[in-house]
Design a protein around this nucleic acid. Structure first.
Lengths: 244, 244
DNA sequence: CGGCTCGTTGAAAGGCCTCAAGTGGCGTGG
DNA sequence: CCACGCCACTTGAGGCCTTTCAACGAGCCG
């Protein structure tokens, strides 16, 4: 371990495998092409073919799908340390859009760079595939939540998952985390109306479980929330007790 | 094209890329280790680590996740030509279970066989990754459906998607298809109660759109269904007009 | 024949949505 | 400096969609 401050991605992957100095160097080199995007303007539009992937280093992004009737469904969020559009590079289609929620910083990664890094360090490849697999598991869990959980449990589960993900890159704890999302984001994520999101949040707050307010999430009764949501973080594959 | 009858997987991949005789041979060789499973008994349990993947050649399977309160959410179905557990081999976790809906035939594929095949024929690797990407897009679309479509549109969309998938392997058309699912399967898939599934099916039948009965789905008004579901098959990436 | 699964239907309850109105913070322009 | 508009949030009332509970019929198998 060096004293150099590592990127969020490095922090995240380190939770999965201990990376050697060489691997760390390769990883940091992937961050060379830095780019910024402003909040609100889509980075990638539905139907567009992406040529590069991004590693998010600061800010939040959501990926969503728009329907003919104007409603939208947010599929996933990306927070610092997450890949963005990894599949559309390794594979083919980008059938949803990406929107920065706040101004963001990201590193552009060309397909060739990535494949080269993979060839150099197989362990790094494994770690990145782990991250991709984890993203997929989160989408599945999201599906389960919308299909089979009531609005309050759904909300609780979502906030807990977000907390765990952020804890992995040092941006959250069992106390809470900073959160730039609006209640409309929550509604489009959880398949609820914005009005109902407001009511659910009030209920959770008045139950003394969690407060979502002024860009900050505060867990008041972590255990109680876990119970309400039936939150089992196994699918996140963050073996250890990271939230301490 | 030879006169030999090809496996469903071969049929499916051929819709994406034209495969050479060599590639066809490699693909067929992956089908060597044939296995059977009986209906109802899980092939892989939640939490278990899978060592192999399967190529489904006959029968239907569903992958689902069980919750603490006993409800279950079906994430996806596998029909002939589909991979099963591909991710848990290439990646790591198998966080959901697989249950054969009827007695099935499948070919067991060891990780090493797969990687060898990939090395021999890059185009085949591309085609298989296309299939994997398509599976992922279907999960996302499923998420959108549960989150943002009403029960009737959800049902219509599901049946249309299934029809398209089956058409790709010659098991369905715009007229309909054979379907071994029960209304309970539909309920667990669509995030509805079995009772409501029954009512929705009745309504669709009485509207003259589609009939689901006795193991058979009959499209009576394909265009009307497409309109109701706002079904845009772009995400299936089956470029051509396969349903003719 | 009894038990089981799958399907069907009715009635009542409840969760979530839509419509509607109103608050407060913040940036912009007169 | 204040008016204005916009956005995020808040709260109430009414209604629809979906669920739950309950009962019953049909087919299948031991």
């Amino acid at each position: 371990m060096t004293l150099v401050e590592h990127s969020p991605l490095t922090r995240k992957l380190s939770a999965f495998v201990a990376l050697s100095d060489v691997e760390l160097a390769v990883l940091e080199r992937l961050h060379q092409r830095r780019r910024s995007f402003v909040a609100g303007r889509d980075m990638v539009h539905q139907g567009q073919t992406a040529r590069a992937a991004y590693i998010l280093s600061a800010g939040w992004v959501c990926s969503y799908k728009l329907q003919a009737d104007g409603t939208r469904q947010i599929v996933d969020f990306q927070v610092p340390g997450d890949f963005l559009g990894l599949r559309s590079v390794l594979l083919r289609t980008s059938d949803h859009s990406f929107e920065p929620i706040v101004d963001i910083e990201a590193a552009e990664v060309m397909t060739s760079d990535l494949l080269e890094a993979f060839a150099q360090t197989p362990r790094l490849a494994t770690a990145i595939l782990w991250a991709a697999s984890r993203d997929e598991a989160m989408v599945v869990e999201h599906l389960v939540g919308i299909g089979r959980r009531g609005a309050d449990a759904r909300m609780a589960h979502f906030l807990l998952e977000l907390g765990s993900r952020l804890a992995l890159v040092g941006m959250g704890s069992k106390e809470g985390f900073e959160c730039p999302l609006t209640q409309y984001h929550l509604a489009d994520t959880l398949g609820l109306s914005a009005v109902h999101v407001n009511r659910v949040l009030r209920q959770l707050r008045e139950s003394g479980l969690v407060t979502f307010r002024d860009g900050h999430v505060a867990f008041h009764d972590y255990g109680g929330l876990v119970e309400l949501a039936e939150f089992d973080p196994a699918y996140l594959d963050q073996t250890g007790p990271l939230l301490k």
